[in-house]
């Protein structure tokens, strides 16, 4: 159960350590109130990953995240894009994880330049799309059809039109900056 809460009231004028919010819920109830003012990882349904400080949330699971970065992983390498303050609509969240710096250092993932990561990501997506296309062609030849459903309420597992849209934007960004 989410409860309405305003992050700004937590430490009264942003000075001093944040006080824990006054939560009046039975123990064992899942909520994000104790995660306020902590660095969290937000994994979205379209596969994107945002990392930032949780500032506010409501009963729908909508969240306000400050100092956000979008982290793009390609294999064990990653790159960051700064996104500032974000409001994430609750329905798009898959998972919220407590950021563990220690665990990250042990994980063996490596930061790379964002341009490099974007290029690598594009390669990967194109490779995936090619595989999918081949599969679809083979299926069609056998009289079967894979339904590529963009309005699905589940996940867009890459290669869908929405994902292609993101890819297009990234490609523009990349072309623009290089």
């Amino acid at each position: 159960m989410f409860a309405m809460w305003n992050g700004g009231q937590n430490n009264g004028g942003m000075r001093g350590p944040p006080r824990p919010p006054n939560v009046n819920l039975p123990s064992g109830t899942a909520h994000l109130l104790y995660e306020l003012d902590k660095v969290l990882l937000f994994w979205l349904r379209d596969g994107r990953t945002f990392i930032g400080v949780l500032k506010s949330l409501d009963q729908f699971g909508n969240v306000v995240v400050s100092g956000t970065i979008e982290r793009i992983y390609v294999g064990a390498e990653f790159g960051d894009i700064e996104r500032g303050i974000c409001i994430l609509r609750g329905e798009n969240l898959v998972l919220v994880g407590e950021w563990d710096g220690e665990k990250e250092q042990q994980s063996g993932t490596q930061r790379r330049d964002i341009q490099y990561i974007l290029a690598r990501q594009m390669e990967e997506e194109e490779k995936k799309a090619k595989v999918k296309e081949g599969l679809q062609k083979a299926m069609r030849e056998r009289g079967l059809n894979i339904r590529d459903d963009p309005e699905d309420d589940l996940f867009v597992n890459g290669g869908g039109p929405f994902h292609a849209g993101i890819l297009g934007i990234r490609r523009e960004l990349w072309d623009h900056q290089t």
Binding site: A30, L32, L41, W43, G75, G97, D100, K103, E104, G108
Partner: peptide, 18 residues
């Protein structure tokens, strides 16, 4: 290996709908 971003989290909150 398929989910590298999970390498840096220990405690998580999962949305029931997923």
């Amino acid at each position: 290996e398929k989910f590298p971003h999970m390498l840096a989290v220990r405690n998580i909150f999962i949305r029931g709908s997923v």
